[in-house]
Nucleic acid binder design. Structure first.
Length: 369
RNA sequence: UGGGAUGUAGCCAAGCGGUUAAGGCACGGGACUUUGACUCCCGCAUUCGCAGGUUCGAAUCCUGCCAUCCCAG
């Protein structure tokens, strides 16, 4: 029996999380976060729909509910960083920060003021106590695991965290919701940047950053087209380049950015060597345990993931201060500065860092730290 | 304005008298997905530079015109 505040998004996962806790006999309080006050291109404010769903679900489960607004914190602690990274030509992952700064910081603190002993979310992940510390574990539904987005959490956050649906499969969650008659049982999974939602990314970014068109060139320097602004592209990207025909007729991919020259580097063929990296360096390391798993300079083998849902990749890591040097067992495609490299050992997520550079990353002119 | 070559969708590019005008890239839509991407699926020329002609039938043959490229001047 504990007082538990559940972060409810209006989706099935968090609905079922709340339902399960209630059934276990806890004193459950549902809280909806509205952290982005803006309508999308079609003029729809999906947050209103989601809040309505949260209310309906809570009525059915019979728990009290509240709505809180962390829009300012989100802007200052997540979105500012997001724009900053794009200005540097990098490709940030705002959701990782959102979890640390909003859901497991601002929101957690708010829950504590409500007298909560625990804070729950609908994340696909697990928490366990191991060797006197809290461990972040991969979810039972291997295909939905969201630990990639949670690697920045620390011991304090995990000591309060609880993921009621982390041991379930997506199908089980929907079944559970349907049987309980929850209106969110068949609701489509949400995608896009957390709290901001799915939208035309280019148009969205354009509202905040000035675009500066320039040349699109091959690694050899041949001009093959024009780009609308370097921030609109990311390494490994194919669509939106607008260049077709010519050359050997294969697809074109972004393989680098020349920040100083405002040129986008592109190459043809998905097997271009410039698209693959044998190693990468990650900085701003964050460990779930609060400290690195091994001492500096001593290499260790573990698994790594460079993007959400990627199959775990074998790697050898060497840590030196706040920098991890990662050597992949197999070359990795489109290793992108700004994105997260997250480390795993067995079923445990150890932590991770932000990729600063990688072999063949093609980033020049100020993108590197 | 002498000679040669070429003109097929936004870009490459098959097709060389018989019919639904290959394929790839780009683009559009969808699936997948709590980042950005990748990937996958579907769609995408009633029409072959233009105008005539030959033929039962032409993008495919003939004539003229237009355009572009190359070599000569």
């Amino acid at each position: 029996m504990a007082r538990i505040v559940v972060g409810m998004s209006g989706g099935v996962d968090s609905s079922v999380a709340a339902l399960r806790l209630k059934r276990e006999g806890h004193e459950v309080i549902g809280v909806f976060m509205n952290n982005w006050e803006e309508t999308d291109e079609s003029g729809v404010c999906s947050a209103e729909r989601d809040w309505a769903d949260v209310q309906r679900v809570c009525e059915i489960i019979d728990i009290p509910y509240y709505s809180v607004n962390f829009a300012r914190a989100y802007r200052e602690r997540v979105f500012a960083y997001f724009l900053d990274e794009y200005r540097r030509g990098r490709t940030p992952n705002p959701d990782v920060l959102c979890n640390r700064e909003i859901k497991f910081s601002a929101f957690l603190d708010f829950a504590l003021t409500l007298g909560a002993q625990k804070v729950a979310t609908g994340h696909f992940a697990g928490v366990d106590r191991r060797d006197g510390r809290y461990a972040l574990l991969r979810s039972a539904d291997e295909n939905k695991d969201q630990t990639y987005f949670l690697y920045m959490l620390g011991q304090r956050a995990l000591s309060y965290a609880c993921f009621p649906v982390g041991g379930m499969t997506k199908a089980q969650i929907r079944d559970c919701a349907a049987q309980a008659g929850l209106p969110t049982s068949a609701k489509k999974d949400s995608t896009g940047v957390c709290f901001i939602g799915e939208r035309n990314f280019k148009q969205f970014l354009q509202q905040y950053l000035p675009a500066q068109p320039g040349d699109m060139v091959t690694a050899a320097g041949r001009v093959v087209g024009r780009h609308d602004g370097l921030m609109f592209y990311t390494l490994g990207q194919r669509r939106g380049l607008g260049i077709g025909g010519g050359g050997d007729g294969r697809r074109w991919f972004v393989v680098g950015k020349d920040l100083a020259g405002n040129r986008l580097i592109v190459e043809q063929g998905d097997d271009s060597p410039r698209l693959y990296s044998g190693w990468a360096q990650a900085g701003a390391l964050s460990w779930i345990a609060g400290r690195a798993p091994v001492e500096d300079g001593r290499p260790f083998e573990c698994m790594v993931r460079l993007r959400h849902r990627q199959t775990l990749q074998g790697a050898r890591i060497t840590i030196e201060g706040d920098c991890a040097h990662i050597r992949f067992d197999r070359p990795q495609r489109a290793v992108t500065p700004g994105q997260a490299a997250v480390f795993y050992l067995g079923d445990e997520c150890l932590g991770g860092g932000a990729i600063d550079r990688a072999e063949h990353d093609g980033m020049t002119g100020g993108a590197q730290t």
